[in-house]
């Protein structure tokens, strides 16, 4: 009898150990499976948060800069820098100075930190002189992300090596503009990959995909899936590409109005300018250096009735402008297309 009792105890222990082992294996399996995924999510999350912290830093600096007239900016005499500014669970360091040799341009360098992720951004922001300083808007004319290890240690006030690097890039960009425009003008005229490849001087052999993929069907020879909106904004002297086969035709009298999306910030030859960014804020029109008189305001009602672009088109047409757009709904994306004040610029 005693033997039987001992045997039973042995089985119970074995079963218990086996169950524990299986449970442990299952736990390890799930943990292993989740670990890789968790690391990916954490990495992506940190990268995005670091970016937002950097962009928030930029917005804080721009807000401070725009709070006073340009002449009273706090870094006018010497650059300003600060480190470890806590923000949203992370921190950022910044360096701000006037752009060398570029009046009314600001260089902003920000390194953001979130947990172990560090990101280093550069913005060159151009400011327009404005009758009302509060309406002056900064337009980023150069944005770059650099290696975070390149950010100088705290206390450094000389960013010249990095600024010269940016200057070199801009110089190269400027000198390359002509050749790039030449080749891209011909590339714009085709949606055929083989032709584009030939014009670009790329490899001629190989099996390329020439038509867009259509869901569930494979490739299709259709190259145009929707009628195109008005042509893109001018990129500096480039001719507007010819109309596409399925382009919505517009009466020739109005064709001028769709030549390019409206850009309100435009220099006038005599130095005066029309400034405005938020469409709802444009309530003052600098009329060739003179403030628009009250009797002229009915034109604003015309804007409400017939579209802002039409209204501005008529005004600017009087000044010899050619930047008009018939479609005011898309205009809002003009500069905000380049720069979102919230800093969340499409990524």
């Amino acid at each position: 009898m005693i033997k039987q009792e001992r045997l039973r105890n042995g089985i119970a222990l074995g079963v218990a150990i086996f169950i524990l082992f299986v449970l442990f294996a299952a736990g390890m399996t799930i943990s292993h499976l989740m670990h890789g995924l968790q690391r990916q999510v954490e990495y992506a999350d940190s990268a995005v948060r670091a970016q937002y912290i950097g962009e928030s830093g930029l917005n804080q600096l721009l807000a401070r800069l725009q709070a006073k007239p340009w002449e009273e900016r706090w870094f006018a005499k010497s650059p300003d820098a600060a480190s470890d500014i806590n923000y949203s669970g992370g921190s950022y360091d910044y360096f701000i100075s006037d752009s060398p040799n570029h009046p009314m341009h600001v260089d902003i360098w920000i390194k953001s930190n979130y947990r172990n992720t560090k990101r280093f951004f550069f913005w060159r922001v151009k400011f327009q002189s404005s009758m009302l300083s509060g309406l002056a808007q900064g337009i980023p004319v150069k944005i770059a992300e650099l290696d975070s290890s390149d950010f100088p240690p705290p206390g450094t006030t000389d960013f010249y090596p990095m600024t010269s690097q940016i200057e070199n890039q801009l110089e190269t960009q400027k000198s390359n503009r002509g050749p790039a425009d030449d080749i891209t003008q011909s590339l714009r005229d085709t949606n055929d990959l083989h032709q584009a490849m030939s014009k670009l001087g790329g490899p001629a052999d190989g099996v390329f995909v020439a038509g867009p993929f259509v869901s569930g069907i494979g490739t299709a020879a259709v190259s145009l899936i929707t009628p195109p909106p008005p042509p893109p904004p001018s990129t500096g002297g480039l001719a507007i590409p010819p109309a596409l086969p399925l382009t919505i035709s517009v009466p020739s009298a109005e064709a001028e109005f769709v030549s390019a999306p409206l850009r309100i910030i435009s220099q006038i030859d005599d130095g005066a300018d029309i400034s405005g960014h938020g469409w709802d804020l444009v309530d003052v029109i600098n009329n060739n250096g003179h403030v628009m008189m009250p009797f002229q305001w009915p034109m604003i009602h015309h804007f409400h009735d017939h579209g802002f672009a039409d209204f501005i088109g008529k005004i600017m047409g009087g000044f010899g402008f050619d930047d008009h757009d018939h479609d005011d709904h898309d205009d809002h994306d003009d500069y905000s297309g380049h720069y979102d004040r919230d800093g969340h610029s499409g990524h």
């Binding site: 590339l187 670009l200 790329g202 590409p241």
Partner: peptide, 27 residues
């Protein structure tokens, strides 16, 4: 490329130095 309003399986863009880049598919 693509021009606004179009969808194609390749991309041509000007990079920050004004070099022209093309992304395309090869079998």
């Amino acid at each position: 490329s693509p021009r606004p309003g179009t969808t194609i399986p390749y991309l041509v863009f000007k990079d920050y130095l004004n070099n022209v880049r093309m992304v395309y598919l090869e079998e």
